[in-house]
Simulated assay, not measured.
Amino acid sequence: MDMSIEHLIAKAEQALAIALQNQQASAAIAAIKEIGVLSGLRVEKREHTRQNASDLSDDELADIVRRGG
């Protein structure tokens, strides 16, 4: 299965079209946001309040490793 950014954007665009066709505003907004994130036009900011790795639990450190960053 192709999991390129282009493929994911195409799928999100399909979801957007279906949402608009069915007058599902929340689903349409979600698809638009996803297209923005995938295309790099929308950046989801997250606040990081912890400064040191020693402040993290083992589970949190494992999650970071699994996500690759």
Rank of each mutant, 00 (worst) to 15 (best):
D55T: 05
S39L: 02
R67G: 03
K33T: 10
R42E: 08
Q23T: 09
L61I: 12
L8M: 15
A15W: 00
K33V: 08
S54H: 08
S39W: 02
I29K: 11
E6C: 10
A28T: 01
A53K: 10
Q14H: 15
Q51T: 09
I35G: 01
E44C: 03
M1C: 10
G40M: 05
A53H: 07
G40Y: 05
D58K: 12
N52M: 11
A53E: 10
R50N: 04
Q23C: 07
Q24S: 07
Q21C: 06
D59G: 03
M3H: 12
A15L: 06
Q21N: 12
I5F: 14
L38N: 02
K11A: 14
L20S: 04
E6L: 12
D58C: 07
D63E: 15
A31N: 01
R46T: 04
V37R: 03
N52T: 11
A12K: 01
G68P: 00
Q21F: 09
E60K: 03
D55N: 06
E47A: 08
L61N: 07
A25D: 11
E13Y: 07
A25R: 10
A25N: 06
S26H: 14
D58R: 12
D59L: 11
A28N: 03
I18E: 10
A30N: 12
D2H: 10
H48W: 07
G36A: 04
S39Y: 03
E13T: 10
L56E: 05
L20A: 06
L16A: 01
T49A: 06
A30L: 09
I9F: 03
A10G: 14
T49K: 06
I35L: 02
H7N: 14
L56S: 04
L61H: 07
I5K: 15
D55Y: 05
S26I: 14
R66Y: 08
S57Y: 04
S26E: 15
A53I: 13
E34A: 08
A31L: 00
L56G: 00
R66I: 13
Q24C: 09
I29G: 05
S57G: 05
A28P: 01
I5G: 13
A28I: 01
A53M: 13
L41K: 13
L38E: 02
Q24W: 05
H7I: 13
V43P: 00
R46I: 00
R46H: 06
S26L: 15
L20Y: 01
M1R: 12
I64D: 02
D2K: 13
Q21T: 08
D58Y: 12
Q14A: 15
M1D: 13
E44F: 00
L20C: 05
L56T: 03
R46A: 00
R42M: 06
I35V: 07
